[in-house]
Design a protein around this nucleic acid. Sequence first.
DNA 1: CTGTTAGCGCCTTCAA
DNA 2: TTGAAGGCGCTAACAG
Lengths: 340, 340
Amino acid sequence: MTAKSSKRAATLSDVSERAGVSLATASKALNGRSDVAARTRERVLQAAEEVGFTPNAVARGLTAGRTGTVGLLTSDLDGRFMIPILMGAEDALGAGKIDVFLCDARGDSVREQHHLRALLSRRVDGIIVVGDTTNPRTSLGHELPVPVVYAYAPSDDARDLSLTPDNVAGGRQAIEHLLACGRTRIAHIGGDPSYAATRDRIVGAEQALAAAGLELVAPPMLSEWSERWGRSAAALLFERHPEVDAVFCGSDQVARGVLDTARDVGRRVPEDVAVMGYDNWSLLAENARPELSSVDAGLQTLGRAAAQFIFDALDDRDAAPGVHRLPVSTVIRGSTVAFR
Amino acid sequence: MTAKSSKRAATLSDVSERAGVSLATASKALNGRSDVAARTRERVLQAAEEVGFTPNAVARGLTAGRTGTVGLLTSDLDGRFMIPILMGAEDALGAGKIDVFLCDARGDSVREQHHLRALLSRRVDGIIVVGDTTNPRTSLGHELPVPVVYAYAPSDDARDLSLTPDNVAGGRQAIEHLLACGRTRIAHIGGDPSYAATRDRIVGAEQALAAAGLELVAPPMLSEWSERWGRSAAALLFERHPEVDAVFCGSDQVARGVLDTARDVGRRVPEDVAVMGYDNWSLLAENARPELSSVDAGLQTLGRAAAQFIFDALDDRDAAPGVHRLPVSTVIRGSTVAFR
DNA sequence: CTGTTAGCGCCTTCAA
DNA sequence: TTGAAGGCGCTAACAG
């Protein structure tokens, strides 16, 4: 293994001793405080360098009210939506010299409570709760001694602050794009009907259609978030509604399945039928034939916003509680517009 | 926002005062030490409950040599190999009341140094360095005051401890499975040739073939880890080597592309040609038509092993340094064996 | 400018 | 069995 150092880490008193100054002076010098003679400071810095001094953040955190840490409480790391959010948050926080405790509750509320307790015990400065569906989740409670923000999955308690992507707007935008492409006979193949995301996207889609004096050519087809379902549903759709000229899908996975079936039955994409995905998961979208147009929920931005909120709270700048719906965007690729 | 509590967190002295005992006694009682009268302990526990006492792990970490934290230093959270490893580690560590600092260096060595310094400053008990390729990476150095273990991407310094999946064995197993299925005219379509993983898997494949007195029907076809490449390479392969009866792919992505092309040119899978993937990425493997047989690198197990190593090191049970290659396994699905 | 003193919250001797 | 005292490493008052 990599060597565990022989001797204990150098402490501030090692430094002060070596520099021939007092502990307090050494502290000031190292922290860049002004009331230290330039030469003294230099001597201290030099000494610190020589003994390989690494300030002990634990000790510092004991005195200061803050530890410079935040907890990231996820419900299921597996969930692919976690990662971008987590990256956004880590990014924003990391920039400000804050470190992140990652806690994965594995979808188990007991484990979540356990982690929560641990985080509080470590005196984190804030907690970001990340869910992997947009279904509202149980609040951690609002009596906590630190600011908490819910990302992606909103809290079910209106007194909490939640950031979640605007799925209604996403559905609307997808349809608006298809309409802009001249499509009018549009169908929807979604995922699991028990998801709030599923319902919200349909609401948005129907709003946009209604605004154009149209409606879906068939009731939304819903089942599960898989390619398999996309393939089956599309087969049924093309058979029962051959007039369809566009399919808005509830996820990129579903859309991939739809593309496969379209190819199987000889429907050209996008000439005969346009296909719109959701999530803009590049792995799926960019490798599809043709590449998949999709709605991007801006998860990394969302993660960053969550972190920003923690920062603000630390500075006593609280945001308005409630569920904030963040804007989404549409990414256009070859499955809706023929590039050449 | 969620309320920041009005009053500061309760401290041990709050508890002791309320219980009418000394600080020391309260401490002993709460920590389950034996030399406390049963009745006294009860009184203390009750008091702790009443004031909502949460032990301050920061203060505890100051005195105790350990903080009960470890750092997880990743080079790129985006990389999908990170996640299972990270889950395995988080899982194993979490079980033992250890919390994890997640640090994503974004592939930038400056940022990595920065994070390393931060972790040391926080006095983590150990560090797990996770890479997202099996290419050796620069060592953090072996003069660090805490145990370090490298997961997936091994360190380039033999004095470090590294855990990485055995890609040679993976290649061997894939071929052995295809041979067991009666295939003899096997081709390989791999990913990026600059990856150690690419080369290792080929070495293993050729070993297994040689052992059976065979060789690849064509030189390995290598380019990039994408479906697109899988499709193109397969088209070429089927044209130039129509006799091929099995394709071992360097990744599930490549395999998905191969499956698409096979379907396009009318080759039945697995009847006419068997297709083997690598990574066992369920998203891709289980949604393929037919479902994809694949080699599983056991990443979660690897992550767990890495965490276990940290535990051992904390107990002064050091493992032998060097690169340890962990076993992989083969997952058989419909792309190599016709289920019915 | 520099040094002394007093904690932060907790645990651990060591007496009583 | 209990309590008083000392210290972990550092910073924030205060004095010199």
